[in-house]
Design a binder for these strands. Structure first.
Lengths: 107, 107
DNA sequence: TCTACAATTCGACATGTTTCGAATTGTAAT
DNA sequence: ATTACAATTCGAAACATGTCGAATTGTAGA
């Protein structure tokens, strides 16, 4: 029988928790380059930007931003890599695909 | 111009917060009748059940369950209606569609 | 090596969340 | 009315989260 429900429950809950804070959701939204549901806008915008770029858009302390980025990263939603003095953030496409699939199977 | 990002941010964050708790996510999963991502399983299962039905599957105090149901309800994810002594819960299809759309527009 | 810039870690505080048991409300049957 | 069942509300305790400023680490250039 085995409960197929409980297997990914904690993992998925962690992903949703990462998206449950308005600032983190905004970061996620900036990085996906997406605006309104139903629209594919800003297709030509950058899909990766450094921590400072995000900092200038968010009106929170940079230490707070750091904290949020770590949460998104630990949830597997974003990737971060250093380039010189800066650290660039981008969406982790496989996690995004996973969450998308999660919803597309529900009615 | 105008920031199209911030409009639904708080609302969507509230929805994700509702899904960020393993127990609430399990309730949501039970009510969608869905199991694993990528599969459309248990198509013939009930998509609505009463609070007691959920209670028997969750090993938490019924007062805690009540609390979680209220959160899901306030986030717009589920609907609840009394039938005699029982209260039946079901997925709110429009919110589910909204969240699904949210992800299907991101790359 | 000094300096400046980019970003993180640390400590502290206020606030919010999860959980329970006990008491309460609402509904229906005896 | 009384009883029994279904579910919620309440109050309290333990725990987690969001936020900041100050101090720290890491990187590159003068």
């Amino acid at each position: 029988m085995s409960n197929c429900r409980t297997i990914n429950l904690d993992r998925h809950a962690r992903i949703f928790k990462a998206l449950s804070n308005p600032h983190r959701l905004e970061i996620f939204t900036i990085l996906t380059g997406c605006c309104e549901p139903g629209t594919l806008c800003s297709t030509d915008k950058m899909l990766s930007c450094c921590v400072g770029d995000l900092d200038s858009q968010l009106s929170i302390a940079s230490s707070t931003l750091s904290h949020h980025l770590k949460e998104l990263n630990h949830a597997g939603l974003i990737e971060m890599q250093r380039e010189g003095k800066q650290i660039f953030c981008s969406i982790n496409p496989s996690t995004l695909a996973e969450v998308t699939a999660l919803f597309s199977t529900r009615r």
